[in-house]
């Protein structure tokens, strides 16, 4: 998972079907950074910077800086990129990489664990179920065991 080639391979694996646009097509126009809702608040965050660092083989620095976790996955950069580069998908890939290296924010890891154990982010307790009944809503199921199997590993 270290070289640009492997990251590209992984990207290709998931998205070749939609039509992959190579990263090196980026000519640094800055459109992505211009429309990014996060960049408006946090100047240091920039989709263009992320692409550039990947092209320069600076994956390690990128992952260890945790900058990729600023992305809200809103897809605007990807939709507006004049070269059709799948920027949001790339950043998602980098987030996956970060997770694998144990560098993701605690909240993210917690959510993964929650899904593994109970199949939902929020498990409704008795109190919640009573409120549902009062409102005329059907009772909800409990935890889903299947996910424990599926999310293993």
């Amino acid at each position: 998972m270290d070289s640009l080639m492997e990251a590209e391979e992984k990207l290709r694996g998931f998205r070749e079907t939609i039509g992959s646009q190579k990263l090196y097509a980026c000519f640094e126009c800055g459109h992505c950074s211009a429309c990014c809702p996060v960049k408006r608040i946090r100047q240091e965050y920039s989709p263009r910077k992320i692409i550039h660092m990947v092209l320069l083989d600076m994956l390690d620095e990128l992952i260890s800086s945790n900058i990729v976790w600023y992305c809200t996955n809103c897809y605007l950069c990807q939709e507006l990129c004049p070269q059709g580069i799948r920027i949001a998908d790339l950043i998602l890939e980098l987030k996956n990489l970060s997770f694998k290296r144990g560098l993701s924010p605690d909240g993210i890891r917690r959510q993964f664990e929650l899904l593994k154990t109970q199949g939902r982010i929020y498990l409704l307790d008795e109190f919640d179920q009573k409120k549902r009944k009062k409102a005329g809503l059907p009772q909800l199921g409990g935890s889903i065991d299947d996910l424990r199997v599926l999310l293993e590993g």
């Binding site: 640094e28 240091e44 920039s46 263009r48 910077k49 550039h52 660092m53 320069l56």
Partner: peptide, 9 residues
């Protein structure tokens, strides 16, 4: 100085 990263490499 890389203009995109805003850092000296």
């Amino acid at each position: 100085f890389d203009r995109i990263i805003s850092e000296a490499l």
